[in-house]
Amino acid sequence: MRQRRGERQEPPYHVVHKLPPGDTPYVRAKRLQLVEKDPDAAIALFWKAINEGDRVDSALKDMAIVMKQQDRTEEAIGAIKSFRGQCSKQAQESLDNILIDLYKKCGRLEEQIELLKQKLWTIYHGEAFNGKPTKTARSHGKKFQVTIKQEISRILGNLGWAYMQQGNYMAAEVVYRKAQIIDPDANKACNLCHCLIKQTRIAEARSILDEVMQGDMVGSNDPKSKARTEELLIELNSSHASPLSPLSAQESASSVEDALVQGLDHLMKQWTPFRSKRLPIFEEISPFRDQVAC
């Protein structure tokens, strides 16, 4: 039917529903995922898109995300490992991020930690963000810029959390302290406080929590941070453990260094012959042994 003069033209279907144009397996899968809300059928078509070479990068990432939402986590991990070789170099970083979330969801902590360390190595060698200082990320449909500094802090925060889930609070402490040097915020400070409480280093934990309660730290006025702070304060006030002696603290710091000798500290120091290529942010956070031992 011909449009009459003065009538407003309706936007195309794919524009209205924020879908890619066309009628390929990938496009149909996105329609099933976003419009018809049929995840199982969408997954089947994402599989078909991958097998037919139709937007493999996007099809694999989208399929893994839908599988995660359907609690098919192990299947999603297997799919990424099987087909990431068919994806472009530009897609690998996003696939790693999805894998980390999948490992976290199904409790595969060792693999999560290993991949997080691998991502730190990638940043350390200047290979993250395809060599650019920032990257464009999406959250809830909105685009925003992420800097290398923010990315390092995010990865360290995830690594600290994984160590906490293992009960390795000394390793988690080192990681959170490094993260706070780079990009401090209330959430990581609370986690650091928790690690210190678990090591019965009550005076240090109280000092960290006092900083959060002053309200000057990023995120300290967030309702979740306030609730967490109150929980930690109650835990501190009810704790009767004695703080570690200076000697014990140094021994703990030494143990942490040993635990991470092939992890973070190795990461920070290993590239000395190529120091000119090393990102400046790593120069800022390398000298750490004395700070931990204080």
Results as ranks from 00 to 15, higher is better:
residue 291 Q to P: 01
residue 7 E to F: 05
residue 205 A to S: 15
residue 34 L to P: 00
residue 120 L to G: 01
residue 244 L to Y: 03
residue 20 P to I: 10
residue 16 V to E: 13
residue 235 E to R: 03
residue 216 D to Y: 11
residue 81 K to Q: 15
residue 250 Q to V: 05
residue 5 R to N: 07
residue 76 A to P: 06
residue 155 I to C: 00
residue 285 I to E: 10
residue 194 H to F: 14
residue 172 A to P: 03
residue 111 E to P: 06
residue 177 R to H: 11
residue 91 A to M: 10
residue 281 I to L: 10
residue 6 G to F: 04
residue 228 R to Q: 14
residue 38 D to M: 10
residue 216 D to W: 09
residue 215 G to T: 05
residue 201 R to V: 08
residue 225 S to N: 15
residue 55 R to W: 03
residue 230 E to F: 00
residue 89 K to S: 10
residue 94 S to Q: 08
residue 40 D to E: 12
residue 99 L to H: 02
residue 108 R to K: 05
residue 191 N to W: 11
residue 259 A to K: 07
residue 72 R to N: 02
residue 9 Q to V: 14
residue 103 Y to L: 02
residue 224 K to P: 00
residue 290 D to Y: 09
residue 81 K to F: 12
residue 143 K to I: 03
residue 194 H to M: 09
residue 226 K to H: 08
residue 276 S to A: 13
residue 105 K to D: 09
residue 2 R to I: 07
residue 196 L to P: 08
residue 64 A to F: 02
residue 231 E to R: 15
residue 30 K to Q: 14
residue 230 E to V: 15
residue 6 G to A: 14
residue 241 A to V: 14
residue 35 V to Q: 07
residue 77 I to E: 07
residue 178 K to Q: 13
residue 251 E to A: 08
residue 17 H to K: 14
residue 227 A to Y: 09
residue 249 A to T: 14
residue 149 K to M: 11
residue 147 T to K: 10
residue 236 L to D: 13
residue 132 K to Y: 09
residue 94 S to C: 07
residue 254 S to P: 00
residue 254 S to T: 13
residue 114 E to A: 04
residue 270 Q to F: 05
residue 77 I to P: 03
residue 43 I to E: 00
residue 41 A to V: 12
residue 61 K to L: 13
residue 55 R to P: 00
residue 102 L to E: 04
residue 5 R to Y: 12
residue 105 K to P: 02
residue 129 F to A: 03
residue 52 E to P: 00
residue 134 T to C: 15
residue 135 K to F: 02
residue 221 N to H: 15
residue 105 K to A: 06
residue 178 K to D: 07
residue 131 G to E: 07
residue 211 E to N: 12
residue 226 K to T: 11
residue 70 Q to V: 05
residue 276 S to H: 09
residue 100 I to W: 00
residue 192 L to S: 11
residue 172 A to L: 08
residue 130 N to W: 10
residue 96 D to V: 03
residue 228 R to H: 12
residue 124 Y to T: 02
residue 93 E to N: 08
residue 184 P to Q: 08
residue 126 G to C: 11
residue 128 A to Q: 07
residue 257 E to N: 07
residue 1 M to Y: 04
residue 267 L to C: 06
residue 83 F to T: 01
residue 202 I to Q: 06
residue 127 E to A: 05
residue 56 V to M: 09
residue 147 T to S: 15
residue 191 N to L: 15
residue 14 H to S: 05
residue 152 I to F: 02
residue 61 K to T: 05
residue 8 R to Y: 10
residue 185 D to K: 05
residue 210 D to E: 12
residue 229 T to G: 12
residue 258 D to H: 09
residue 175 V to H: 06
residue 114 E to V: 00
residue 92 Q to N: 07
residue 223 P to C: 08
residue 142 K to V: 14
residue 180 Q to F: 00
residue 12 P to H: 06
residue 248 S to M: 15
residue 148 I to E: 13
residue 67 M to L: 06
residue 288 F to T: 05
residue 182 I to C: 07
residue 151 E to S: 12
residue 137 A to F: 08
residue 162 A to S: 14
residue 62 D to P: 02
residue 76 A to K: 05
residue 8 R to W: 04
